[in-house]
């Protein structure tokens, strides 16, 4: 391999994007809370995700540059955590609890219903970009199982009817 071939085959494909003012502001606030820049990595990724919906490679690089840390190391953190999305997600993310109490209370039937209604399985997004379905570990609401967290709201005592209501409501609001 010559130098130029090598450059062609392994040149970086993505460039960092520019963080928005709001993102920078939020990250800078976090920086005041920790004695070490790198401790803010996860927070910063969450901030970016809050504003962008997910963490693209461009965002990852931007955060790494901002915190003066290795993008590779940061990606190691990003890919470790369940709630950092390294792929685009829908406008509404259904964090669906599939842990034991919800299982006992029949969450699998409800998941099957969602999948049928929306045509998506875990980890998938509807074609219209509206919903993404993601399983999460126990949401700590086991006395009101089955539950899911969507749009910042905990939906409890889920039933097929309730799911239909929720979907109908979302459709209305669109």
């Amino acid at each position: 391999m010559t130098n130029s071939q090598l450059i062609a085959s392994t040149a970086p494909r993505v460039q960092a994007r520019t963080l928005t003012e709001q993102e920078v502001h939020d990250i800078e606030h976090e920086l005041t809370l920790y004695p070490d820049k790198r401790a803010v990595g996860l927070e910063a990724l969450k901030i970016v995700q809050k504003h962008q919906g997910w963490v693209s490679d461009e965002s990852l690089l931007a955060v790494a540059n901002f915190l003066e840390m290795s993008a590779h190391e940061l990606d190691g953190v990003a890919t470790f955590f369940n709630l950092i999305f390294r792929q685009p997600v829908g406008r509404k993310v259904m964090l669906f609890c599939n842990s034991v109490s919800c299982y006992i209370m029949g969450c699998e039937q409800i998941k099957a219903h969602i999948s049928e209604r929306l045509g998506i399985d875990y980890g998938e997004t509807t074609a219209d970009g509206q919903f993404t379905l993601i399983p999460v570990p126990c949401l700590g609401d086991c006395d009101r199982a089955p539950v899911m967290l969507m749009d910042g709201e905990q939906q409890r005592n889920l039933s097929i009817e309730k799911i239909n209501e929720i979907l109908a409501e979302s459709a209305e609001r669109e």
Binding site: D57, L60, H72, D75, G76
Partner: peptide, 28 residues
């Protein structure tokens, strides 16, 4: 690579049975 030699472009990625050792993007 990281702790001993001070490299920055190799990392443990992912988790559980899917841990992956590589770069966030391929490259030298």
């Amino acid at each position: 690579y990281n702790d001993y030699a001070g490299g920055e472009d190799l990392a443990a990625l992912g988790s559980h049975h899917h841990v992956y050792f590589g770069r966030h993007e391929e490259g030298v």
